[in-house]
Amino acid sequence: MPEPSTPSSPSSVPPADLSFEKRWFLDGIVSGLPLAAPALPFGFVVGFLVSESANINNFTGWASAFIVFAGSSQLAAVELLADNASALVIIFTVFLINSRHIMYSAAMNPRFTGAPTWFRILGSYLLIDQSFALAENQPDDMALRDRMWSFLGTGLTFWVVWQTAVGLGVVLGNVIPEEWSLTFSVPILFMGLMVLSIKNRPGVIAAIVGGVVAFATRDFPQGTGLLLAIILGVIAGTLAETRLKADLAETASTS
């Protein structure tokens, strides 16, 4: 996994005779694999739910993995379909759960300044929690070409793992014993992403507010609690940063 301080050469150090595109693509794959591994039980559960649901045929359920390609919202959609929810309710729920990608997209856009249209079309499709987190943690002075190929490596790795995991779940059903608690690897993953994304004290405040509000509003309908938690967490972090800067300026002027 590339450290924020990684100089502009791939962390996986593949053979030097490869082109830069291939080296950074490989670097993205290597960085993405530890993040993609926990998606296996998650995707397997989504596939398992599809295989159990009388309302969804197996192929259509599997197809959701490449049509939507967003785990928690797919899980919600499959559950709502099983409950005979209306199409509008299902699609709006998925939009609410996935609207955080608008914020990811806004954060990524300056990092892809000058990127060609084909990359923006494909890269948008591959913008998920994990590829966002890795790209966000890369150094600001990284070259655009390296950034692009690393992003594609991570995104496509995750895509292959996700299609495979959901497909296995559909085909095999629930053979993993529940006592293994493998779905717990999902919150561990988010804990790891959270810690890696915190770069200063206001970041800690954003995480605390986000976590506490999300817990307090966990019974809010259709993912609105999650949205509220994210927005309040971001506001808290930004206010804390403003306050911190004002304090520093005051200290500097009085000393």
């Binding site: 914020m103 986000g210 994210i230 967490g233």
Partner: peptide, 26 residues
């Protein structure tokens, strides 16, 4: 994007990942 919004984007990731993680753990 306005400067305030750009600054605030740094806090999307910590807030979001905490918001997904905490209810899942508890």
């Amino acid at each position: 994007l306005p400067e305030t919004v750009q600054r605030s984007l740094a806090y999307v990731a910590p807030a979001t990942f905490a918001a997904i993680m905490v209810p899942a753990v508890l």
